[in-house]
């Protein structure tokens, strides 16, 4: 059974304790008993931690099974262009004005064919999956984002948001625009027998 110590250099920040080790053990893990790696199927499900001194944690019961017959391969592909626009509203009824801004941009963009078009209010609902709370805010930032087939189409999102400066609710400020090429990744499994590896040394 795998065992060892986790520690860090003296005089550096952070801390090594059971709490930080447990968070790291489960970070980006699905089934703790079956974590697929190229070398083995790691089994973290019975791992135990024991702090032995400050910033030293002993672990034991890490184990594993024989590796699978496949490698995970991440394939990148061109997935259009990302377009984004943002603008801020502040003061009295800022949320209402930002929502009006959303309605205007939504109408202006509705005949174009964007994928995953989103309208967010940063500070209110842009990352929160929960019901809206904290309605009494001083400022809010409107964000519109989506993907398009061409860079020219993607630019239209930011332009329609920036247009709110003079053709939208009062007091919109700090508009920004962004366009990026999108390279998405899809993960597939490839039989190990089809992957030949070799090491080549060369002088530069």
């Amino acid at each position: 059974m795998g065992s060892g110590y986790i520690t860090k250099l003296d005089g550096t920040g952070g801390m090594i304790n059971t709490a930080t080790c447990t968070e790291q053990l489960l970070y980006e893990i699905h089934d703790p008993a079956n974590y697929l790696t190229p070398d083995c199927i790691a089994d973290f499900s019975s791992v135990k931690f024991k702090p032995t001194e400050k910033d030293v944690v002993k672990f034991r019961n890490a184990t594993g099974k024989e590796a699978t017959e496949t490698y995970k391969v991440s394939v990148g592909y061109l997935n259009g262009y990302y377009g984004e626009g943002q603008i801020s509203y502040g003061g009295i009824q800022c949320i209402e004005r930002a929502k009006l801004g959303i309605a205007i941009v939504q109408k202006r963009l509705e005949k174009l064919n964007f994928k995953d078009l989103r309208f967010d209010l940063i500070g209110l609902n842009s990352i929160s999956p929960l019901k809206e709370q904290h309605k009494d805010v001083n400022e809010v930032r409107l964000r519109v984002s989506g993907r398009a087939k061409s860079i020219e189409e993607a630019k239209k999102i930011g332009r329609e948001v920036e247009t709110l400066y003079t053709n939208g609710p009062s007091g919109g400020g700090g508009a920004t625009q962004k366009v990026e090429e999108v390279i998405s990744v899809v993960s597939v499994l490839v039989p190990k027998s089809e992957v030949k590896t070799q090491v080549v040394y060369s002088k530069t």
Partner: peptide, 11 residues
């Protein structure tokens, strides 16, 4: 929302 390499969301 599709994952980190294709999502249009903020986080």
């Amino acid at each position: 929302d599709g994952g980190v390499t294709s999502s249009t969301s903020l986080d």
